[in-house]
Amino acid sequence: MGGCSFLIHVRHATAAIAAGMADVVLITHGESGRSRIGVGGQGAAPAQPAGQFQAPYGVGGPPTMFSIPVARYMQRFGVTEEQLASVAVSTRKWATLNPRAAMRDPITVEDVLASRLICWPLHLLNCCLVTDGGGALVLVSEERARDFPKKPVYVLGAGESVEHVNVSMMRDFHESKAYRVAGENAFRMAGLGTDAIDHTMLYDAFTHTPVYMLEALGIAQPGEGTSFFESGRAAPGGDFPINTNGGGLSYTHTGMYGMFAMTESITQLRGEAGERQVPGVEVGLVHGAGGMFSAGATLIWTNQ
């Protein structure tokens, strides 16, 4: 399930604890995406579908595959490269407030468009970082958490979905069914709507991934995800803060970012985010991506 596996682990662990199959579940992530210690060879085996039907055409990692749908999205909704760049600008504003973020200098739309082309329509600053890092979280029953020294966070809703294995088989290139189904299931389980969300983490492997997620989750209308970022609503001071750690674009991205989206959400719910703390956060949403638009996972949780 790729980078959203850790969100899905939370869903499965919650079920296991509720069923009495586990008392304490530890979910961990560690990856040396930058140093590449213990990393095996890349590329699909030549008899696999990806080896037969994608590799011969020169795909080379996520920037060439996660980006495949974007040209159709831009054409369908009339979205520009400038608008996609605004996602990186909004997210970098948060990173300037996070002393742990890898990239903290403010950037402009012009900076994004002037950065070198990686894989059109993606410039360097449309792409996430490649870093070393790790994180972990512990899940227990509500009863067991009662006398813990730290205030717990309670899972309200969780959803997961898989759409395809290879991005060339995605059903509709302008929207993600996997993200939509995961979100619908999480909101239904939580019994909440989007108006209940105080703080949001969206897995930003590239500037377009949080855009697809905003639309799939019903927070933005189809085609209006980039406008949401352009308007400043997601940035510091905005009414719908998104990716407050600086995201995969500016904080960290080991290769599987899902754990870091969750840890920032929990940090905000605990009121421990320092200069970037969003006031009054009671309900947080985390949405993760797996593979190349292959899978999605959503968590909704609360400090109440």
Binding site: G58, V59, G60, T64, V70, A71, W120, F173
Partner: peptide, 23 residues
Amino acid sequence: ETYVINHRAAPRFEEDAPYVIAV
């Protein structure tokens, strides 16, 4: 349907860059 123009070539595609990967 949709496409990218890859400027950062996959290994052994260096002489082709930039090249179009399409669906």
